[in-house]
């Protein structure tokens, strides 16, 4: 589904991603861990198409299409979804209206019929229930005055509505209380199937107890320095990153 080859990206002349290679197949869940500032959000932003980042070399194929040549909206329409680490507030745009616009724009891009108001409302209620969200937030301005946890839940709610092929969750677990974490994990699990894939960026092994990954990668200084199964996350939880840093220092 997704193939990243030798990806280099920089921001304001500063190189942040230094040769990322990653392959994600349909049905898989990949976890990306790594110390602060290692480039995890940068990778997520580059995949979503944020223009502040300049890709200096490398290639990203999404379903055999050149992802890097697509605009952010084209990527979303093609089925990429980024759950933001810091979702923005948009006063004056209700969550419901925003989502309806997004859904219909995506549908239109595929030549599908737009949803009518009734069907849309039904779908929203159903997905809100999945995340145990009170529907009153749908009429409120998007993320405005939402608590940190509510914003994260709202991201997953949007994901549930849009049903993307590839979802990148950037630290969706940070700021969630234990109950909310379970709800969000359940939400993700219920959306998992053989046709979609997830990249889950997290600092905590706990999330991976609920969303069980097929692969765990460690991103450090702009590179994936280690990949493994879910045991790798447990090992990191126990030992921290120092041993990996030391091993890298030795090989250089």
């Amino acid at each position: 589904m997704l193939r990243i080859e030798e990806l280099y990206a920089s921001v304001e002349e500063k190189e942040i991603l230094k040769g990322i290679n990653l392959q994600v197949k349909a049905g898989e869940v990949h976890a990306i861990m790594g110390p602060n500032g290692s480039g995890k959000s940068t990778l997520a932003s580059v995949l979503a198409g944020r223009t502040d980042y300049t890709v200096t070399s490398g290639k990203v194929l999404f379903e055999n299409k050149e992802l890097l040549e697509m605009s952010p909206e084209e990527r979303a329409q093609a089925g990429i979804f980024l759950a933001f680490q810091y979702p923005v507030e948009i006063p004056g745009v209700s969550t419901a209206n925003f989502l309806k616009t997004a859904m219909n724009e995506i549908r239109k891009s595929k030549g599908e019929e737009t949803l009518d108001a009734m069907d849309f409302l039904k779908l929203m209620k159903q997905k809100a229930a999945l995340l145990e969200l009170d529907t009153s937030f749908l009429q409120r301005s998007l993320n405005e005055g939402f608590s940190g946890g509510e914003k994260k839940k709202n991201e997953i709610f949007q994901m549930a509505m849009l049903e993307p092929k590839l979802a990148v969750l950037d630290e969706t677990d940070s700021g969630l209380d234990i109950d909310a974490l379970k709800i969000v994990a359940n939400g993700v699990n219920s959306l998992r199937n053989n046709n979609n894939a997830f990249i889950v960026v997290t600092h905590y092994q706990r999330l991976l107890d609920y969303i069980i990954p097929d692969f765990v990668h460690v991103l450090y200084k702009g590179k994936i320095v280690r990949s493994g199964g879910k045991e790798l996350a447990l090992e990191l939880e126990e030992r921290g990153y120092d041993w990996i840093k030391e091993e890298i220092a030795e090989t250089v």
Binding site: R50, S71, R75, A102
Partner: peptide, 10 residues
């Protein structure tokens, strides 16, 4: 960017 990242054109 947030809106575009949800599939809404410029």
């Amino acid at each position: 960017f947030y809106l575009q990242a949800r599939g809404i054109g410029k």
